[in-house]
Design a protein around this nucleic acid. Structure first.
Lengths: 376, 376
DNA sequence: TTGTATGCGTTATCAG
DNA sequence: CTGATAACGCATACAA
């Protein structure tokens, strides 16, 4: 590989010392404006860029953040969401010349292993964590490692956001880096806990339900995603609360869980539509399942929205290419990613981890929702 | 962040020198089996991992490869393909503990800028390049930088694969790292040109056309993707060659280009179906457009496959959730990614860049293809 | 077989 | 304001 210019080259060409060059290039005082300008010009000419390894070695900063996607192999409904999220994340990172390390793994255990490795190798300065779970081991792990992190789509009701004293072990080798589970780990100072970007799943669910209720629907089924995910739980809880408030029992409004796949989405649809009193409206936790549901309805000869209304959680091109086009919950996923990246940069800059709220999604009514047949 | 163990810690604990530890850990001769075992045990205990920055600095290797996705904002049809590709890439990289740097940018110019920056920062040891184009500036650029690369889905007819002598300039600072286009760059030694992983688009296209022709179709339209992409050109050329061989003029078999979006896919479908002698079969270059086309047909009251057959290039969950389910060209995208990663590792290990062929895709007939009405 | 001495490119700490 | 000099953690050529 062709040789790349170093600070030494610049120093030689500009006739000053290496440290002067370093100062000039990093906007530090201790160098005359004249010299600074000249050094910069020469650096520019030579196409110099700081060697990231050298900088990391001396500066304790790798200039990279990580993102791991644990996906259970056959589940691909979240992809569109995911790529838009990453795109937003990078909009923010790239201005700070921060690189993104990306890894796809099979499950959360593997994900944790990646975090440990990245930490031990000093590969990343922080991580963005997606798909928060119930009893999630990751916040503890990351806090224990002292690896700054942002949980994307964190809990609706986070613990107290205590600003932080508390320094984790000036101790010797960190918390058992090779070792087993963080289960027995001691309580972690709140200041090192990951930040959280909250999506208002509860509010969004109410919005959807009110839309359907307003149209006259009284039998609604929520075809939820993986039950282990925090946002699934939040949506289900929100539905329960809402339906109690509306005086609808679990026979009228309920959630059924799936693994997000088209197969389970279709199966769930078939099951509930075969009941003696089938729902008149279905809310799907992603676009792929909504499509699968629509296909099942077509197959059964059930007109949408004539006899069945369908709502997709999360919009995508898919929701607009069906016939009828799907009513969907639209959110600005790239903005979500930007917010997460900004928060991570803030934490890296020394801010106390905190919880931030993203915008409430907007329900976009299209052709797949209408009053139920009984309303006529 | 908690302190991480270094080689020095291991040396102290095991009572040998740092270099002995280094030898032991890197499987180099010059250390007794006894010592090696002990050192390893202690390293394990301490949870030691090599500091990637230090290793990169001394070893000239960053232990990371890069992948840039230039996507024109509203185009998201390739996503499913892309994530599966990345997943396959990582299966291979992760065994070698190579990290993947991932970046999403707006266009090819920005992509080139990323390569230059990564090169100058020594961020990556090599890159995987996707979406080869006609008159692609990237191979020249990468060859000039001396950055090992693999083009995924490269040309069907690559230049001669000359094994390589030729060393690019022991020259001073490499090829104009800050500078403008590689246009005026001198011819690049073949040995530094990127490797190529070929997908047999031509063969796949013939397969699709033969399937349709066998069913009786004589008016076929290929709704192609972005015309600037090499694989689009290959598919179009293949269709032309095939149709000439079959004696079908451009009024019977032809390609129309789009930008891959559902909108243009739908528009193209509407346009061709409105012609006096509309095609009886449509081949779409991605799944999203195929879905859009299906929706248009539904809207126009044209039964599929009764009066119109539809084929999707690239399978995904989407093709299985429609009604009817879409006949699709299935390829093992993860295997494609694995192959690309293996080739990159080989080049990094010193192999001469070469061209490798991935498996021919398989056409999976489903419910969207049938004989045309005129065949009855 | 083992320990010592350098270098990798930067940043940071000192003296001048 | 400037210029040596020492880290940072690892690899390696060389001496013991």
């Amino acid at each position: 590989m062709a040789r790349r210019p170093t600070i030494k080259d610049i120093a030689r060409r500009s006739g000053v010392s290496e440290s002067a060059v370093s100062f000039a290039l990093n906007d530090r005082p201790g160098v005359s404006e004249d010299t600074r300008a000249r050094v910069r010009r020469i650096a520019e000419e030579l196409g110099w860029q700081p060697n990231s390894a050298a900088r990391a070695l001396s500066g304790e900063r790798s200039g990279a953040v990580g993102l791991v996607l644990a996906r259970p192999a056959h589940t691909l409904g979240v992809e569109s969401f995911f790529l838009r999220l990453v795109s937003g994340v990078q909009e923010v990172l790239s201005v700070g010349r921060i690189a993104l390390l990306f890894q796809v793994v099979e499950d959360v255990d593997a994900e944790c292993a990646v975090y440990r490795r990245w930490w031990a190798e000093r590969r990343v300065d922080g991580v963005i964590v997606v798909d928060p779970r119930i009893d999630d081991p990751r916040p503890e792990l990351l806090a224990g490692l002292g690896l700054p992190a942002v949980m994307v789509g964190g809990p609706d009701a986070p613990g107290p956001d205590a600003p932080g004293a508390g320094d984790l072990g000036a101790g010797d080798l960190g918390p058992d880096p090779a070792g087993s589970r963080p289960a027995a780990a001691p309580a972690v100072p709140p200041a090192r806990r990951p930040s959280t970007i909250r999506a208002d799943d509860a509010g969004a669910m109410v919005q959807v339900l009110e839309h359907l209720h307003g149209l006259g629907h009284r039998r609604i089924t929520h075809v939820a995603g993986l039950p282990g995910l925090a946002h699934t739980a939040r949506r289900m809880a929100s539905l329960r609360t809402w339906s109690e408030g509306r005086g609808l029992g679990p026979d009228r409004a309920r959630s059924v869980v799936t693994d997000y796949s088209d197969a389970e989405g279709a199966a769930a649809t078939r099951r509930v539509l075969a009941e003696p009193e089938p729902p008149t409206a279905l809310v799907y936790d992603n676009d792929v399942m909504a499509l699968a549901g629509l296909a099942v309805a077509a197959e059964l000869g059930i007109p949408v929205p004539g006899r069945l209304s369908i709502v997709a959680w999360d919009d995508s091109a898919l929701c607009r290419v069906t016939h009828p086009r799907l009513t969907a919950l639209v959110r600005d996923t790239a903005a979500f990613g930007r917010l997460a990246a900004e928060e991570l940069l803030a934490v890296l800059a020394g801010d106390v981890p905190r919880t931030r709220q993203s915008e409430l999604p907007r329900l976009e009514p299209r052709e797949s929702t209408a009053p139920p047949p009984t309303a006529y």
